[in-house]
Design a protein around this nucleic acid. Structure first.
Length: 278
DNA sequence: CGCGTCGCCTGTGGGC
DNA sequence: TGCCCACAGGCGACGC
């Protein structure tokens, strides 16, 4: 579910909220959520007693840096949530899989109905050395590159634009929803091939990419009708009210008023304007 | 190697 | 009202 903007909002919330806190207790109710570890004991043992010294993000991965050089890596998958609880007595939501309790009081809870998300502790604080993350491409939000560098990357690959934008090895953090919004903003069809783009189209694509991600973070992410994404304190985002294409089949294109269409691409819904995206 | 499809899961909403 | 199917913000393992 959450893509780069939602994960970045959570990172900021976490950075303010859990940095400096000491982990006192860890409860794992669903071993599947820590499946990279041999068993939940090992996961718990590597967390208890550690202090959180900062929170980073790489693509859709959250990295809670711990003293002693290890990192708690969190990926939310399709349906994961992180929620702050003031006390242990606070009612537990269904599908709460991991609870981290802090010495100073309060808890961080990991909730995930579909269980595609996961948590694991990795060896080093040099994130490039975490093998699970080493394949990730550039993070366009944290480390914007020049548009001509971007252009060189784009034309070096021969792929359709939507699968390319969603390829985490190429750019980290973009998923199904934001790829549609970015392509709408650039006025480009999802199936244009990357090596067919003119210089001006590359520039439009990169500008749209940066603008969509920045605006989405500014409005604290997208909360769709299912209400699945909320921030650390349970508050929904606002960016969905600025969506131009995603989940808007049949509605008029905000640019040219033609009805937006939906197609299935690699078994994912893709929304675009067949008239003004070329 | 690059690509598309499938499986992993649970919940929900629409059609009948 | 209830049942069933399609579908949902991701990712990695396959097979061609």
């Amino acid at each position: 579910m959450p893509e780069l903007p939602e994960v970045e909002v959570l990172r900021r919330d976490l950075e303010r909220d859990i940095t400096g806190r000491h982990i006192k207790t860890v409860e794992v109710e669903t071993p599947r959520s820590v499946r990279r570890h041999k068993n939940k004991k090992e996961f718990i043992g590597r967390l208890e007693g550690k202090k959180v010294v900062g929170v980073d993000r790489r693509g859709k991965y959250l990295l809670c840096r711990l003293d002693g050089g290890e990192v708690l890596v969190i990926h939310l998958g399709m349906s994961g949530q992180l929620r702050r609880a003031k006390t242990a007595r606070e009612a537990k939501m269904k599908h709460t899989h991991v609870i981290i309790g802090f010495q100073q009081g309060g808890q961080l809870r990991f909730i995930d109905p579909r269980t595609f998300g996961e948590m694991f502790v990795a060896e080093t604080d040099a994130i490039d050395k975490i093998k699970e993350l080493s394949h990730l491409g550039i993070d366009p939000y944290d480390h914007p590159i020049s548009w001509d560098e971007f252009g060189a990357l784009v034309v070096s690959r021969k792929a359709k634009l939507k699968p390319l934008l969603m390829d985490q090895k190429f750019i980290a953090g973009i998923g199904n929803m934001y790829s549609d919004e970015i392509l709408w903003g650039a006025g480009l069809r999802w199936d244009r091939t990357s090596d067919s783009l003119q210089a001006q189209e590359i520039r439009r694509l990169y500008r749209s990419l940066i603008e969509v991600l920045q605006e989405a973070v500014k409005f604290r992410g997208s909360t769709l009708s299912d209400g699945q994404y909320v921030d650390l304190f349970g508050q929904p985002g606002e960016y969905q009210t600025y969506h131009n294409a995603y989940d808007r089949e049949g509605k008029p294109c905000p640019r040219c008023r033609q009805p937006l269409v939906r197609e299935r691409v690699a078994s994912r819904s893709t929304y675009f304007c067949a008239s003004c995206q070329v």
